[in-house]
């Protein structure tokens, strides 16, 4: 008698630590953003009256804050103060970043941006929903597409007909219930 009992979940695994430089990207970007803010703020035109606070002062302050906090964070990182990734019900803290999935998801999103105006919301949203669900592992591919199509059409009709919001209908323009 043998038994194979696999758990399949790794809820107890210690969080995977990525290279320290990955974590430094954000603070460095903050510092860069701060420098940019200060530099760009010098190009803001200041009208007359000198004794009041002009349109540059606040951007300067924000830029300085960005630089300061970026530097503090980088120093902190160097000293080993690392951030803990946020907990979430659906996140497995024991695995590394799954870049292919993120890329597929980005592709689905890009498809929506490209398709929404020529082909309309129903088609574009179907592609977004189907593509995202597929990249996250829904199989076979036509199942999320079908669910997405139903959802996209229902949302389209409810939002354009009942709530009066604008959504492009694409080739369906002029068809009853689609706008």
């Amino acid at each position: 008698m043998s038994s194979v009992v696999g758990d399949g979940t790794s809820r107890t695994g210690r969080p995977v630590r990525e290279a320290p430089w990955a974590e430094a990207v954000f603070p460095v970007a903050l510092t860069a953003l701060g420098v940019f803010t200060i530099v760009d703020a010098t190009r803001i035109f200041v009208p007359g009256s000198a004794n009041t606070l002009g349109p540059r002062a606040f951007p300067y302050a924000v830029g300085a804050l960005l630089v300061a906090v970026g530097v503090v964070l980088v120093i902190g990182l160097a000293r080993g103060h690392r951030g803990d990734a946020e907990d979430s019900e659906d996140v497995d803290s024991g695995v590394g970043t799954d870049w292919p999935t993120v890329a597929k998801l980005t592709g689905s999103f890009a498809a929506l941006v490209v398709l929404i105006e020529p082909l309309g919301w129903p088609v574009a949203a179907t592609v977004l929903f189907g593509g995202t669900a597929w990249s996250l592992g829904a199989r076979p591919w036509w199942r999320p597409m079908l669910v997405g199509a139903v959802l996209a059409v229902v949302v389209h009709v409810v939002f354009t007909q009942m709530l009066g919001l604008f959504l492009p209908a694409g080739p369906l323009d002029g068809v009853r219930f689609f706008g």
Partner: peptide, 13 residues
């Protein structure tokens, strides 16, 4: 009876 128990998360239907 002689048996085998397979219990796991598989990612498939």
């Amino acid at each position: 009876v002689e048996f085998d128990l397979e219990h796991r998360v598989g990612g498939r239907d």
